[in-house]
Amino acid sequence: MRPVKPVGIACSASLSSLGKNIKQALTTDQMMLTSRDDLLIDQSVLVGAYQGEVFSGQLAPAVAYIDSRNFRLALTALEQMNLAEHTAHVSKTRLAIVMGTSTSGIADNEPALKQRFDNPNVKVSYKKQEMGCLARGLQTYLGWQGIAYTISTACSSSGKAFAAGQRLINAGLADAVLVGGVDTLCQLTLNGFNSLESLSKTQCTPCGTHRDGINIGESASLFLLTKEQAPVMLMGCGESMDAWHISAPHPEGAGAQSAMQRALDSAQLQASSIDYLNLHGTATPQNDAMEIKAVRQVFGSNGVNISSTKHKTGHCLGAAGALEAYICHQILLEQTWLPLHQTGEIDCELLDQSYVKDAVLKQPIHYAMSNSFAFGGSNVSLIFGTS
């Protein structure tokens, strides 16, 4: 893997079930998931729902055609970022956008689709659920004129947006790139995973003895990457595609191992340099088992601090990588805490790892890695570091 030049995180914002105080949410046993009975037929389900206010302003005609909760959640996060301060001196043609999503505006079309089944004359506007509308809509809203596109590779989507953004800057195609991911709760997703028997009946337990599946969540997490030095830098990214199975991961973690090693190589770091690893950690039997195998292959007996945060956020699908990147960003900035792993019993076959059981940071950390592994074997690992 060719080394890359680090890029700075000029500013960021994140919305999720964690609320405004993510440190408290991730360092205590506070329950952050909520029960919903409007997503599955005749049953309730625990989800990581964003509980805050959502952008409610009137949209200009240029973007009104893609109006959806997904797009408005992105605008809500955007309002929390002072983009103008960091981009005022940059030509609009040099400002790029790369977003990740998997649901787009599907949730807003679900009621209309139900009506259409009974009445074929009901019109459904499919533009709001097109994958490309997220980046295109943000570009129009901001008035930027550089490269803009959306990545949709399931759960690795927004992680890959970081890799793409770093490449655009290093290739000289952009001076600043808005990257991240947005995904919102919808019936299609919940019922799809339910049909696969992949939803947990309770709060999920990554790497747990009795883990029985995932919780689904929603999030909007955005970052501005620039060539400038920043307190936290995106050091490197590693991508792989093992294509082992349409939904199951490679049982030996071959693709996961490759992504982590490629991230280390691109950042010119040794595995021993990583102080914290945010696992993909979905709490499905196969994913957790293969990921820990891959961690052993890359880190050996290094004893890197690891945890999954999905028992707090749910699996945010295309936005998961960006949300977990935001968590890594915050712990590197604050230098006082690490996210706790779930407190239940750990699978005896996965017990040889250094799961975070004490949230208090004992010594400064310099580098954090975050994993995102998707259907089809689409994998990405990101490394963030302090400057």
Rank of each mutant, 00 (worst) to 15 (best):
R94I: 03
L95A: 08
L95F: 11
A96L: 07
I97W: 08
I97A: 08
V98D: 03
M99R: 04
M99Y: 04
G100Q: 05
G100C: 13
T101H: 00
T103Q: 13
S104F: 05
G105K: 01
G105W: 02
I106E: 00
N109A: 12
N109C: 14
E110Q: 05
P111G: 07
A112K: 13
L113K: 05
L113F: 07
K114Y: 10
Q115E: 10
R116E: 00
F117N: 00
D118L: 12
D118T: 10
N119H: 11
P120V: 09
N121F: 12
V122H: 09
V122Q: 01
V124P: 14
V124Q: 08
Y126F: 14
K127S: 14
K128S: 14
K128F: 07
K128Y: 07
E130L: 11
L134Y: 03
A135H: 03
R136Y: 09
R136P: 02
Q139G: 08
L142V: 06
L142P: 06
L142C: 13
Q145V: 02
Q145T: 00
Q145W: 00
Q145H: 12
I147H: 14
A148N: 06
A148W: 03
Y149R: 03
Y149A: 09
Y149K: 05
S152L: 01
A154L: 04
C155Q: 01
S158G: 05
G159D: 12
A161Q: 06
A161D: 04
A163K: 08
G165N: 11
Q166K: 10
R167T: 09
I169D: 14
I169Q: 13
G172Q: 09
D175K: 11
A176N: 12
